[in-house]
């Protein structure tokens, strides 16, 4: 276990270092996963590029149509930010159940995305919100859809020299709401056995204008349940319709058996939690519950 820690003074310095060290380099944000992986000897980076000092990456900005979340925004910052108390509340709901306060005080949104764990809580609402990721390289900056960015468990389309700089989330239209639900064996400190994020927009007649459903921990990456989304769009959201969406989502996922749960149970959870998350969105839109 031997490496050098670099403390770049700017984002461009950080990216230049990453470019120089290529596969031997690794960005260090909160470190809540990276340091554990290094200590478990699953990762042997020679150069850690510490982003902690780059205040410009911490900002959460309201840019009119969209919200720009700096990669270094902590889970605590998301949880506490008033921008995520309305239609985007699923993000705060997800951030609030990541680890304990100690982890949320340092763990970052950028790290959560770049890590690409299929069980990452914050990724589910971002996917349901069709977030986009801004990647900065030494030569160019590009903006990609989060769903394209996630390539597999622990794998993304980020190049060695590229930094996850920001995540952009479009503000949903009026009569929209989001919700996030998570199941684990305990009520805190859990890696999701299943997590579900939903985003719903209703038209004036109360029909579903748009639905987005993201599922965590049931496939190689956090996934969208598109068949369920299509079945909802244009429909009046009766209990039966919501239940059918749950069944469609459960049918579309590819869970595995592991020490945390069986594939069978995970599928049943998807079937249960998808309608529940959608129902919560409906309640939020109709203002019955915030």
């Amino acid at each position: 276990m031997s490496f050098t820690v670099h403390h770049p003074a700017s984002v461009s310095d950080a990216v230049a270092l990453a470019e120089r060290y290529g596969a031997d380099g690794r960005f260090l944000a909160g470190g809540t996963d990276l340091i554990i992986q290094i200590h478990r000897k699953r990762l042997a980076s020679q150069h850690l590029i510490d982003l902690t000092g780059l205040a410009e990456l911490r900002a959460i900005e309201d840019a009119g149509d969209e919200i720009r979340i700096g990669a270094l925004a902590t889970h605590k910052a998301i949880e506490r930010n008033p921008l995520f108390q309305g239609a985007l509340v699923a993000l705060a709901e997800a951030a609030r159940v990541v680890g304990g306060h100690q982890v949320r005080n340092v763990g970052t949104v950028g790290g959560n995305i770049a890590n690409a764990s299929p069980a990452a809580d914050v990724v589910a609402p971002l996917l349901a919100l069709e977030a986009e990721v801004v990647l900065q390289g030494a030569a160019a900056t590009r903006r990609v859809r989060l769903r394209d960015f996630l390539a597999g468990p622990g794998r993304t389309m980020r190049g060695d020299g590229e930094l996850v700089r920001e995540v952009h989330v479009a503000k949903p239209p009026p009569r929209s709401a989001t919700a996030f639900l998570k199941a684990g064996r305990r009520k805190a400190m859990e890696i999701s056995v299943v997590c579900v994020a939903a985003r719903l927009t209703l038209d004036d007649a109360g029909r579903c204008a748009a639905a987005r459903i993201a599922l965590g921990a049931v496939s190689a990456t956090t996934m969208r349940a598109e068949a369920a989304e299509r079945a909802l769009e244009g429909a009046l959201l009766t209990d039966d319709v919501l239940r059918d969406a749950g069944r469609l989502a459960a049918g579309a996922c590819h869970p595995i058996d592991d020490v945390r749960a069986s594939a069978r149970y995970r599928r049943l959870l998807v079937e249960a939690l998808v309608p529940r998350a959608l129902a919560r969105c409906v309640e939020r839109i109709s203002g019955r519950r915030s």
């Binding site: 305990r186 009520k187 890696i191 945390r260």
Partner: peptide, 11 residues
């Protein structure tokens, strides 16, 4: 201790 699940304060 990630997967050996002792009760937290919320449990």
């Amino acid at each position: 201790l990630t997967d050996y699940k002792m009760p937290t304060s919320l449990d």
